[in-house]
Every structure is written in structure tokens, then in C-alpha cells.
């Protein structure tokens, strides 16, 4: 983010920034005008002695009328300008591509029209209007792409929406801006605005030829953060909402009914697909979404390989 305003990344953002600059100009003018007069009076009329002569001015109707009417006109202009630009922000173009967004503590999920699911990384074609249809799985969140000047809360059981268009290829931040608990500040993501070729490759799931080939455990590590596992499962042994992944493989876990299991690949796979099937004693059920059908078998295997690396 080199330039705070007028980054030139989207047309609508540029319109919004014009409103910003218009208001900043008004703020600067009023601030300087008021305080220049204030400071001038403070210095010019400093008390010289106890016998200073002061005027008994109680008011001036003309002046008071003027400084009531002018601010009224100014704020009305600002209001109308703001509403007009905002109107465009609320009306997605007809050709917008709709992507479903789900906010969960503490990750973003993106579901494409063809059923494909991404987490954390939102891939979009540059130059194409994108409409996000958003809902929350748990508490309030807010979806914010500062560089593109869009934001809207993500609410449970009610769809909210916003639209944006990244005019150029690039990677832009996504922040959660509605406080949502411990990892609120880590509920981040990236918008990847892709050029035509890269987008085509992404749609056809062709791996980027330039990308480094990762080992299964390395892919698993990426999935661990991408799907928000880190929100509840630590890797350093510290307790959290779910059991820690440190030394998980081969550990003996007991359940509320007194039975025990030695953690193996199958137990982990079951817990990813159906988390409520076997809840480790001391932890609450219904804390984790079921990933059945969301993660491919390959993804699950990669995650297990990653968890294995956390054994000392």
C-alpha cells in the first residue's frame, strides 16, 4: 500500500477516494479557519491589566443566521455526494460473478458457482465485477478489502452482500473488522486478482508451472492455516478450544465415556470429517465444522502428514 488514497486499483475506489478528498478539504478548511480565529483572538485580546475595556457584545443575529445556513448547505452537499457514490457501491453490475462467502471463527471460506471451495485466498479474474454473497457460521464478522474500499458485516442467518472489481492483477488484503474473539486479528485473507491466463489455469486447476513443488507435509502446513485449524488447535502444546496437534500422532486420548484411543491416521481422518464423533474428554462438542465433502482425500492425507511432523 504505497499510496493511502488514489491507489488506482479500482474505478469505484477512485470515486470513493474523491469523496474522501472532498471531505478532507472541507475538514482542513474548517479546522484551519476556526482555530486560526481562535488562536488569533487568544493572542490579540490577551489581558493587559485589570482595567481592560471589553465590549458587551451579546450576539449578532445576522452572523448567527449565516453560520447556521452555510454549514447546513455544506453538509447537505456532502450527504448527497456520499449517497450518490454509495449507491453505485450497493448496486452490483448485471454481469457480476457471485461468490458465496462464509465467515467462521477464524477463517474465510469462498464457494464458487461451480462448487469449488477455497479458504483464506479469494481468486478472482481482474477486471471482472465480483459480487460476494456472505453469511456467518457463528458470530458477527466483517469483510473488508481496504485497498478496494469495500466492507460489509457478515451476519449469522442473514445474507449480506458487497461487490468489487479489481481492475488490475495483484494481491490485496482481507481483514475481519468486526470483533469476533481471540483470533480476530488473525482472521485475514488475500484477494488474488488474476490475469486472463492465470485465471484460466486456476479455473482448470492446472498447477502453476512456476510454483515450487511442495511435499505433502508442506502442503498440509498450508492447509492448516488456510482452513483456520490454527484457531483452535495449537502446534506448541498450549491448550486451546481443541486438542493441540503437538505430539498428537500416537498419543493416547480418552473420551467422556471413559474409552480411550491411540491416535492414528484413521482417528484423525474421522475427526476431520465428523468432529463430533469422538470428543476428547475436557473439550466441548459442536466447536468445529464437519469437513466431510469439503476437503479432498488428498488434502486430508497432506494434513495428517503435516501433523506427523509435529511429533518430537
Amino acid at each position: 500500500m504505497d499510496k493511502i488514497l488514489f491507489n488506482g486499483l479500482s474505478e469505484l475506489g477512485t470515486h470513493v477516494d474523491r469523496v474522501h478528498v472532498f471531505i478532507i478539504a472541507i475538514m482542513a478548511f474548517c479546522f484551519i479557519a476556526c482555530n486560526a480565529v481562535l488562536i488569533y483572538f487568544m493572542l490579540r485580546y490577551r489581558r493587559k491589566g485589570p482595567d481592560d475595556v471589553t465590549a458587551s457584545i451579546k450576539g449578532n443575529h445576522l452572523l448567527e443566521a449565516v453560520w447556521t445556513i452555510i454549514p447546513t448547505i455544506v453538509v447537505l452537499i456532502v450527504f448527497v455526494y456520499g449517497v450518490r457514490v454509495w449507491g453505485d457501491m450497493r448496486k452490483p453490475p448485471e454481469n457480476a460473478m457471485t461468490i458465496n462467502v462464509t465467515g467462521v471463527q477464524w477463517a474465510w471460506r469462498f464457494e464458487y458457482p461451480d462448487g469449488r471451495i477455497e479458504a483464506e485466498d479469494l481468486y478472482v479474474p481482474a477486471g471482472q465485477p465480483i459480487r460476494l454473497n456472505m453469511v456467518s457460521n457463528d458470530v458477527l464478522h466483517s469483510f473488508f478489502i481496504p485497498e478496494l474500499r469495500v466492507k460489509e458485516d457478515v451476519v449469522p442467518s442473514q445474507y449480506t452482500h458487497l461487490w468489487f472489481q479489481a481492475d488490475y492483477e495483484g494481491v490485496y488484503n482481507i481483514f475481519c473488522t468486526e470483533y469476533c474473539g481471540d483470533n480476530h486479528s488473525y482472521m485475514l485473507g488475500k484477494v488474488h486478482a488474476l490475469g486472463p491466463e492465470a485465471w484460466d489455469r486456476w479455473v482448470r486447476r492446472v498447477p502453476d508451472p512456476d510454483a515450487v513443488q511442495l511435499s505433502p507435509a508442506e502442503r498440509g502446513a498450508k492447509l492448516y492455516s488456510k482452513w483456520g485449524c490454527l484457531g483452535c488447535h495449537s502446534t506448541d502444546g498450549s491448550p486451546n478450544i481443541g486438542p493441540t496437534f503437538k505430539n498428537l500422532m500416537g498419543r493416547s486420548e480418552s473420551f467422556a465415556d471413559g474409552s480411550t484411543v491411540v491416535v492414528d491416521e484413521n482417528y484423525i481422518m474421522e475427526s476431520i470429517k465428523q468432529p463430533n464423533a469422538k470428543i476428547v474428554a475436557g473439550f466441548k462438542p459442536d466447536q468445529m465444522p464437519a469437513f466431510e465433502g469439503q476437503l479432498s482425500q488428498q488434502d486430508i492425507t497432506d494434513l495428517i502428514d503435516y501433523i506427523k511432523t509435529l511429533n518430537e
Binding site: 469523496v19 474522501h20 471531505i23 472541507i26 475538514m27 456532502v78 450527504f79 456520499g82
Partner: peptide, 22 residues
């Protein structure tokens, strides 16, 4: 004056979207 004037971009819809909760 600073407090009041910085209320303007928060009252304005187009600019509040960006500044809200920041």
C-alpha cells in the same frame, strides 16, 4: 473541532464504508 469535523467522513455513506471499525 477535530472531533466534530472527523465525524463528517463517518456520517457520509461512501466514505464510512472504508473507515467503519478502523
Amino acid at each position: 473541532t477535530i472531533a466534530g469535523l472527523t465525524g463528517l467522513p463517518l456520517a457520509t455513506l461512501a466514505t464510512d464504508v472504508h473507515l467503519h471499525d478502523t
